[in-house]
Design a protein around this nucleic acid. Structure first.
Lengths: 249, 249
DNA sequence: TTGACAAATATGCCTGATGCATATATGCTA
DNA sequence: TAGCATATATGCATCAGGCATATTTGTCAA
């Protein structure tokens, strides 16, 4: 939509008929869930809040949307601010707009999620006092009070600010839904990977074990996975062949 | 996100550290695609714009989001304004925020889609000078210039305002993706329906024909379709059994 | 140098779902 | 009351997924 439909449709100029300052506008922000898989666990990048509200809690990195900036551009700017994450898979997730989600003023937030493989994330030195990679604990699907928890390396729950737990919960559901459909699994792996690594990504996202043989057959038959001719080295057993993702079909 | 992360984290009160009037905010609107299936065609409710910009073009019904109103509530309010569409399936689709999508000022629009069966829509008297049910012509998936067209009953293209063609395109993709997964097909049918009607819904959304026997077996085996014991009447051939949707698996 | 190891890779079979063809049932209409 | 058009039922071939078993191959330790 755009003009106020309820307005009398007389012949004033469109500038006169739409006065942006005539009523208050909400603030618009983006929040970005940077997700990776490490040691068979889903993890997300969290930053500690240093200001009210929810001071001391953990939140997704975010920022306000500039007046001349697209939503995607705002999300990429937030990513760039977090140590140079560029060229990563980024997709809009959902828009959160409960009137009281921020106690200060009305803030509507467009949530995004980015997928990175753990090596890339560790390279840019994420862990610090105000930034960490938190493990996502996903309760059983549809379970009562099935909210996603973020925990530290010792399993202690990290308190999340605002509705960011809802955002992370939606990320998990979206990943499960798009896993087969789109090439999401590959975004969480380095450029070359073994089928075992790919299966671990699938099993982590789906939170269930998969049949090894049929997984292998299905992936090879899909044509989205092509052998590079190389194989792993120094793994203490027969090395697996390395594959890469093929976008075409 | 919420506070300005770049701000110095000193000890001023949070009210002082966040001045909503210090920088301009975009307008926030919702647009709702009311979708139905009639005569084996996907159709959407369009309204004719009576003001600039895109005066005379067709657009999705929409409205601005109130400062104390959730996004879902805003979308339902828009629906209620269109002749009393309540209790319909409504789901957030995607948020469109290109800086120039509205030439007047920055407007960020959260697109929704609603699913209705055609009887319900016809009952409330949709067709008029400024409102109509337009057929969606969906080009072959991934085809060059694969934009969705809205056409009138004679097949003439209706010009769409803003990025509303993109919105309708996304609706179609979303419907295809969620068709098997969620109970979307049933929202486009009356409370009791035949398996043939359900198959037509599936074929219309997927834009391909399905095997009748396996479709029937699959639906009955899914447990989401239960017989009511009743059957159609006066159809000029053997009447089909009537079924209804069962939410519990 | 060689054998044990651990996981990758290969092969075969069973089962269930889907595609397809054919046969039968049934309310409506002329 | 016969014919019609479509629903419903049954049988079979094909294919993908689940599962078990056998073989292959770098690594590491004796």
């Amino acid at each position: 939509m755009t003009p106020r439909d309820a307005r009398p449709a007389d012949e004033r100029s469109f500038l006169a008929s739409y006065d942006a300052s005539a009523f208050p506008h909400p603030s618009v922000a983006v929040d970005v869930a940077v997700v990776t898989i490490e040691d068979g666990e889903l993890k997300a990048l969290l930053v500690r809040r240093t200001e009210h509200p929810h001071r001391g809690r953990w939140s997704l990195p975010g920022g306000f949307v500039g007046m001349r900036e697209s939503l995607d551009a705002a999300a990429r700017r937030v990513l760039a601010g977090k140590g140079g994450l560029s060229k990563v898979y980024l997709e809009q997730l959902y828009t959160f707009g409960a009137p009281k989600r921020d106690p200060r003023t009305r803030v509507i937030s467009i949530a995004y999620y980015a997928l990175v493989h753990p090596g890339k994330l560790r390279d840019i030195g994420i862990e610090s006092d105000t930034s960490r990679l938190a493990t996502l604990q996903v309760p059983w699907a549809g379970e009562e009070g099935g909210r996603v928890h973020a925990v530290d390396e010792r399993g202690r729950k990290l308190p999340l600010a605002f509705d960011h737990a809802d955002m992370l919960g939606l990320v998990v559901l979206r990943l499960r839904g798009k896993l087969d459909y789109a090439g999401i699994g590959f975004e969480l792996l380095p450029r070359e990977f073994t089928l075992r690594q790919l299966q671990t990504v699938y099993e982590t996202i789906l939170d269930r074990s998969l049949n090894k043989d049929s997984f292998r057959r299905r992936m090879l038959a899909s044509g989205r996975v092509v052998p590079t001719g190389r194989q792993e080295a120094h793994v203490g057993h027969r090395p697996a062949a390395l594959y890469r993702f093929s976008r075409d079909v």
